[in-house]
Design a binder for these strands. Structure first.
Length: 627
DNA sequence: GTCTGTAATCTTTTT
DNA sequence: GATTACAGAC
């Protein structure tokens, strides 16, 4: 037995050594999933596989980096050359190589959710102008959900419409029109949205020559968090593994929490069913103490593969249920308790507060600030989603792909005197001129608002002259945007710091295309370097795969968690899995906090589904602090 | 056409 | 309780 595998238990070691061909590892929470993948990587390298022959698909970029770093530490082998990242990242890489196969130019840009929403809004307005005013027609936000769901589930617009909101079924024809036009617009503007990345990558791989070339590269494919893949992603890994047929996926079906974006935990079952698939199970829970594991076992979601977790860590402390009155009191209790824990010697970095929705954390944020407890928020608005960073990106996107109207509009509107109308005219002009002209002369011949146009033109052409991405941004910042921030935002100082950080990040890149796609598809770039000892606030979704000594789950009351929508649509199964993910995060202490009189008016009729009422009383300690 | 203040309109989870 | 749509002033 290789001694570097000594650190694994029997189940883990078997999974590392014997998984080959088509394999699935069913892993309970806290059973060392990451460890198994890391050791699998290590084992492959030890047996002579080159990093460039491995494809590692993870749920976030950070997860991939972590595994690679650990494998490097354990082996001393540099993993330079490995292909690793999220599905979107990998699809982007493939699509850059074969863009023309699907009618794109290789310099295509990627729309984030907000961009794609505004493009849908634009198309929606145009189509509705033709058909005349329609009352209660779905908003652009709803349309986007419908389109996205249809794409990610590879189903018809009709069934997506039924799923998202059946009351719009009468408008099916017009919605189809908008969808068609939206697709055409994207194509014309040489840009793709998040869903297109997956769709087009799969489309490209239908070509047998390309499929052979691409799938030959990857002797081994490893996929983490397989329970959260959708049908497109399943297709993609099937195509990429079609030559060597070594594909190892790791899954916990009880933790599938992304069905809203098409994830189907049935992928796990379907994958297992195919002949010759090897199945491994690792069920020991190394993370949580026994009283927590007992609660976990009692809370296994319905409709998952039956499992019983074994605990190895012991403790006298049961999970604690706290009944508070409302959000205010909940916040007060939680921050007081956190202070107490820190006094007792708990490391703030090892304390986290989890919630179903961002909005549930507002009162707590205020309370924590009052008590001077430092905290960091994992979810919420991302760095690249802030207005000021998006402004800078818009300039860069114009240089990268001048056909894209959304960025032209965004840039134009930064200048006083230019509103929606002029900006839209300008974008149309730019779109028409972009094919024949260089960026600097695209605006020639546009006659409105001469002064501002001249300034835009000058900025763009000088940015183009600068050779590195970082210099391009620096130039824009110093000659225009720094002043703009000062004139328009009271909190301009923080925003300026963000841009300065962006300039630093850009130093690592020598290609504009690379920089832009990493910003939209590779969220690791954005993770702010947090200094000092801070507790963590995050949604349960973002907490997936993470662990802390102490975890508070707040607002565990009907209407908040389970969410109001889930109760409306009677979609409790997924909420159960989200709750399951939440209670499986702590190592030592779990607090479940609920409100007796929540502000949400829904709790009164929704009382029927209360997670806390389903918990056997002897498994927890209950305290009532409400008035 | 643009800008600003007020009324109406929803409220989830994310690459 | 924040975002968006709209109306009216410039």
């Amino acid at each position: 037995m290789e001694d570097y595998l000594q650190q694994l238990d029997d189940e883990q070691r078997t999974a590392v050594l014997k998984s080959a061909g088509r394999s699935i590892i069913i892993a309970g929470p806290g059973s060392g999933k990451t460890r198994v993948i890391t050791y699998k990587l290590l084992h492959l390298l030890k047996t002579g596989i080159k990093p460039s022959e491995i494809l590692l698909v993870t749920f976030t970029r950070a997860a991939a980096n972590e595994m690679i770093d650990r494998a490097r530490m354990l082996t001393g082998i540099d993993l330079e050359g490995i292909t690793a990242g999220t599905f979107h990242h990998i699809c982007n890489l493939i699509l850059r190589r074969y863009a023309r196969k699907v009618g794109l130019f290789p310099n295509f840009t990627i729309l984030d959710e907000e961009d794609s929403k505004s493009l849908i809004k634009h198309v929606r307005t145009m189509v509705l102008e033709r058909t005349g005013e329609i009352k209660h027609f779905p908003s652009h936000g709803v349309l986007q959900k419908i389109f996205s769901y249809a794409t990610n589930t590879m189903s018809t617009l009709h069934s997506a419409l039924l799923k998202i909101n059946p009351k719009y079924i009468d408008y099916e024809k017009i919605i189809e029109d908008i969808y068609r036009e939206y697709t055409i617009e994207k194509r014309n503007q040489n840009c793709v949205d998040y869903d297109d990345l997956l769709v087009f990558a799969v489309q490209v791989l239908q070509d047998s020559d390309i499929r052979l070339r691409e799938s030959r590269k990857y002797k081994w494919i490893l996929v983490d968090e397989f329970q959260d893949t959708n049908i497109l992603q399943l297709n993609l890994i099937e195509l990429l593994s079609s030559f060597h047929k070594n594909i190892v996926v790791v899954a916990d079906d009880s933790q599938s929490i992304y069905s809203f974006r098409g994830a189907r935990y049935e992928n796990v079952r379907d994958f297992m069913k195919i002949d010759g698939t090897k199945l491994f199970k690792i069920q020991t829970n190394y993370r949580s103490v026994e009283p927590i594991v007992k609660l976990i076992n009692a809370t296994i979601p319905k409709r998952s593969v039956p499992k019983v977790l074994r605990a190895v860590k012991f403790s006298d402390q049961k999970p604690i249920v706290i009944k508070t009155s409302d959000r205010q009191e909940e916040a007060a209790y939680v921050s007081k308790q956190i202070l107490r824990l820190i006094e007792q010697g708990f490391d703030p970095e090892e304390i986290a507060v989890l919630y179903r929705s961002h909005s549930h954390s507002l009162e707590l944020q205020i309370e924590l600030s009052k008590q001077q407890i430092d905290f960091k928020i994992l979810s919420g608005i991302r760095f690249t989603e802030t207005a000021h960073v998006k402004d800078i990106i818009a300039f860069l996107r114009i240089i990268q792909n001048p056909r894209e109207k959304i960025s032209w509009i965004r840039v134009a509107r930064l200048f006083p005197g230019i509103g929606a109308k002029t900006a839209s005219n300008l974008a149309e002009h730019a779109y028409g001129a972009a094919l024949q002209n260089d960026v600097s002369s695209i605006l020639d011949g546009f006659s409105q608002k001469k002064g501002q146009i001249l300034e835009i033109k000058k900025l763009l052409s000088e940015m183009q002259e600068e050779s590195t991405v970082s210099d391009k941004i620096s130039f824009l910042y110093e000659s225009f945007y720094q002043q703009y921030l000062q004139d328009n935002y009271p909190d301009y100082k923080e925003r300026q710091q963000d841009i300065e950080r962006l300039i630093e990040v850009a130093l690592r890149y020598n290609s504009l295309e690379h920089f832009l796609s990493d910003l939209t598809v590779n969220e690791d770039v954005q993770n702010n370097v947090s200094k000092g000892q801070k507790i963590t606030l995050t949604t349960v979704h973002q907490a997936k795969g993470l662990e802390w000594d102490v975890v508070f789950v707040i607002s565990v009351n009907p209407g908040d968690f389970p969410s109001y929508y889930a109760l409306m649509e009677n979609n409790i199964d997924e909420e159960e899995r989200i709750f399951y993910v939440a209670i499986t995060r702590p190592r030592k202490l779990l607090y479940l906090v609920t409100q007796q009189y929540p502000s949400s008016p829904y709790m009164y009729w929704a009382k029927a589904v209360d997670f806390l009422q389903k918990i056997p009383e002897e498994l927890v300690d209950i305290y009532d602090t409400s008035y």
